[in-house]
């Protein structure tokens, strides 16, 4: 196994095209444990962290850009970002521990394609886009299009994510992410739920996006819950409908981490709670920001 650390996107792209079994990595917090556990190692491991623009967090007038290999600790520590996207920031802050978050990246969390990845539902509800580089230049994908199944992505072998684009949070909008684990940290989500809402001037919900993690092969949106919310004030009846729709949207498995029944029931609970938090946050962002 060879280790290479290109210093530009172009160099990385040509490395990937020239060696078929090359694999990129950022924090290696998935890659190294997987190799240790017996997964065949690639011939070439391409370290993305030496490419400057891949380790950066910036905002211009309209959007934030997060380099694909940026340690997720940036997202929790940057005050402006975590103020604007508290849900996404909290999701990033749930990954592993401080030590892990100093290494782990959004690119790795997404492309490892675990159904339980914590940042993904939070990225999906915020409409995050992935800028993908390949031999023929770049293309842009919605984060919700990247993962196609457990361990599977829509990227070609010679493609990788350069950065994520996140449109600025509109006023009267807020996001939230909650996950259920039996412990308080160092665990894998049994259920994860992300929500984002935008409120109309009269306080009713104008827009709602809900996504669940760990309850299906990929992150799932909950269109029925979103529809139920729009135009409502999220009264108890609506929230119960949200919970029911969330439970219904699940396609979970029984495994050592949770049962189908449990995952369905708790998906409803977390979806409801995430909506309530997102609304509270939206109310606080009352056009001033």
């Amino acid at each position: 196994m060879k280790y290479v650390a290109p210093s530009s996107v172009e160099e990385a792209a040509s490395l990937l095209s020239s060696s078929p079994s090359a694999q990129v990595f950022a924090g290696a917090t998935d890659v190294v444990p997987q190799i240790r556990a017996g997964r065949p190692a690639p011939d070439v491991l391409v370290d993305l962290k030496k490419i400057k623009e891949l380790v950066a967090l910036n905002s211009d007038g309209d959007k934030w850009t997060v380099g694909a290999a940026t340690p997720t600790a940036y997202l929790t520590e940057d005050e402006a970002f975590s103020h604007e996207f508290p849900g996404l920031s909290e999701a990033a802050g749930l990954i592993g521990s401080d030590q892990i978050q100093n290494r782990s990246s959004l690119g790795g969390n997404l492309c490892n394609a675990s159904p339980a990845a914590d940042s993904v539902p939070a990225m999906v509800v915020n409409g995050v886009r992935a800028v993908v580089a390949g031999p023929n230049g770049t293309r842009v994908l919605d984060v919700s299009e990247v993962v196609t199944g457990p361990g599977q992505t829509a990227l070609d072998d010679d493609e990788f994510i350069v950065e994520f684009e996140i449109d600025k949070m509109p006023s009267r909008s807020g996001d939230a992410y909650l996950r259920m684990i039996p412990r308080t940290e160092m665990d894998i989500a049994v259920v994860g739920a992300g929500a984002r809402v935008t409120l109309a001037d009269d306080g009713s919900i104008e827009q709602a996006v809900l996504a669940l993690g760990a309850v299906a092969p990929t992150v799932v949106r909950i269109p029925d819950a979103e529809q139920a919310l729009v135009g409502s004030t999220a009264d108890e009846e609506t929230l119960n409908a949200v919970a029911a729709a969330a439970s219904e949207a699940c396609d979970p498995i029984d495994d050592k981490r949770g049962t189908v029944e449990y995952r369905k029931q708790v998906a409803g609970v977390l979806a409801k709670r995430a909506v309530v938090i997102a609304i509270e946050r939206a109310e606080q962002r009352n056009g001033t920001n």
Partner: peptide, 9 residues
């Protein structure tokens, strides 16, 4: 990871 002993928190 899956044999869940308590963590400090």
């Amino acid at each position: 990871l899956d044999y869940r002993m308590p963590v400090a928190s």
